[in-house]
Amino acid sequence: MCATCGCDSGGSTAIHHLGEHEHTHGAHSHSHSHSHDHGHSHASSKTIVDVEQDVLHQNNLLAQRNRGYFDAKNILALNLVSSPGSGKTSLLERTLKDLKGELEFAVIEGDQQTTNDADRIHATGTKVTQINTGKGCHLDSHMVLHALQGMKPKDNSVLFIENVGNLVCPAMFDLGEKERVVIISVTEGDDKPLKYPDMFHSSTLCIVNKIDLLPYVPFDMEKVKANAKKVNPALEILEVSCTSGEGLQTWYNWLKSRVAVSELI
């Protein structure tokens, strides 16, 4: 079930562990054991098989496996989702620099191509693995599983999984994260939550980025909040600017409160 463009050549997922050797995962098989308790039937007769299986069953199984790994190592895993260009990587760069020494971090970067984002994270001195999905439009739990095998994030760390920039497809794929954080920027429309409700419905925190640009764009903060709350009344919303630094302390406090909670468990 590697990233699923249906194309054999360009669809393989490449995983780059920065600062280490690289290897590529093509279409590899996992062994599964099945019980074979079938009876004998004639070739011509038709049989009804009750399947009742969730289509995302395999992804969900591997997501739970990742979740167990995170729990055992007390790792706070956050899945960061947004459209391209909302400032996910910039937010991470600022966070990693500002909280250096306070929290232990690791990052998994997801993009179709290039290690550009991972290079930016690597420059902050943080452990990072780049997943290139090829033609794939989202990360799945299988890719994250392999990225984890190579990177081995430390116990008690915060793991940011920066998903492929896309507000649609990643919504359906559980990666095993503790919480999903959706990021939008004020240069996008304030109707984003209504246009892409699945993502806002499945997230627990929404970060509105680039608020330093508010004087220059027709973005109504109260409207975006109202729209987001219509989709998900429990959604927490923070306003930040990675350029001016405004609001970042609130995000850091949110992060530290989650680390504190996960340490108690």
Binding site: V51, L56, H138, M172
Partner: peptide
Amino acid sequence: HELSIVMSIIDIAKQQ
């Protein structure tokens, strides 16, 4: 992502 979904359906059908 619908293509991923169809591929998963084919996998499940083949397995069954």
